[in-house]
Write a protein that binds this DNA or RNA. Structure first.
Lengths: 170, 170
DNA sequence: GATGGCCTACTCGGATAATGCATGTCCGAGTATCAGCGG
DNA sequence: CCGCTGATACTCGGACATGCATTATCCGAGTAGGCCATC
């Protein structure tokens, strides 16, 4: 229940690239020196960001990395998923079905639990997709611009309701 | 960004103890056989649950484990925190301050990021504290009983607003 | 027959290895630059 | 003087070790229950 330290590093990299307003790409060694982290490991992280499409790499002399999008278009969720893959906090080994083997409570409990964690995933995705790198760069942020405070959004609520509705039909 | 498989196992243990309505304690070997998991490792998990105060252990002959509370009083958050300690998804090594060293954006960005992840922690805590083991046991769950659908709760919102207000005063 | 003590078998409990994944490192593949040469 | 060609130095890129946390295991400490000797 902890996201890897690579996420922190990746975030810093993106921020650093965003604050460098020069259009020339930044070499990975330059970045690692700036952040005072291992050059080798940083390259590994850079690669993940490239694969995810957040930054672009320029090979050859005077090469380096640049942002692939504007800071407004890079969400926290993208950074996290670039490093860790899709968010899926619950490791389901189907163990719960055995706990319910007595049959009294059928598989309803399993469904409920799965929905709960599925919901947790969506909560996190929703949350992190709301803030962008640009939010971090604003010098003074007004309250209305605060990331992810739209608690009245109903997408998740509807999703769960639908799920449960189907179960209720049994 | 994944909670350990121990959480799944712990959840199953609690469910199993809850469904056993006999008042006599259940031996750990019995539980491990029932769930088909390693007896040794299960004991380690049991110990964590005991320390957290979710189950009580009875030593000696015919001993075993029983729930320390009623299923209604055991929340998902308690189970998770029993296994993994307090939820803290972001590993802060203070790296971001270096990314902002250019001074242009001051430490405002650091504050924003910390608030975001602090908020994520609270969202998860709030979410998991809303569902109880009893929710899993209900044979047919009505929509109004769904755990954690109170999206209009304002505790987190207020928290973040307060935080940002203080920053805005600078 | 009742009672006290002892012994045993069973339980949990903590110290001790093995595994898996994130972390960290190294060397090879590829390309833009630049110098030199020829036209 | 201009254009081509080759070497070169720099970049990224992926294969290879290391460390730590979770997972898994074993043996020891402690207790409730039963058995037996004694009163």
């Amino acid at each position: 229940m902890k996201l890897t330290s690579g996420v922190e590093q990746a975030t810093c990299i993106i921020v650093l690239l965003a604050t460098q307003d020069s259009r020339s790409p930044l070499a990975s060694d330059h970045i690692s020196a700036r952040l005072d982290v291992s050059p080798s490991y940083l390259k590994k992280i850079m690669r993940k960001l490239v694969v995810k499409g957040l930054v672009i790499s320029v090979p050859g002399n005077n090469g380096g990395f640049s942002l692939a999008k504007s800071p407004e278009q890079i969400t926290g969720l993208e950074i996290i998923e670039a490093m860790e893959g899709e968010i899926s906090i619950f490791s389901d080994n189907g163990l719960l079905t055995k706990a319910f083997e007595d049959g009294i409570h059928a598989s309803q409990g399993v469904e409920v639990l799965n929905n709960i964690f599925k919901g947790a995933n969506d909560v996190l995705k929703d949350y992190f997709s709301k803030f962008t790198v640009a939010d971090l760069l604003k010098k003074s942020m007004s309250l209305s611009e605060l990331p992810s405070l739209d608690w009245n959004n109903t997408s998740l609520k509807d999703f769960l309701k639908k799920e449960m509705k189907e179960n209720a039909d049994d």
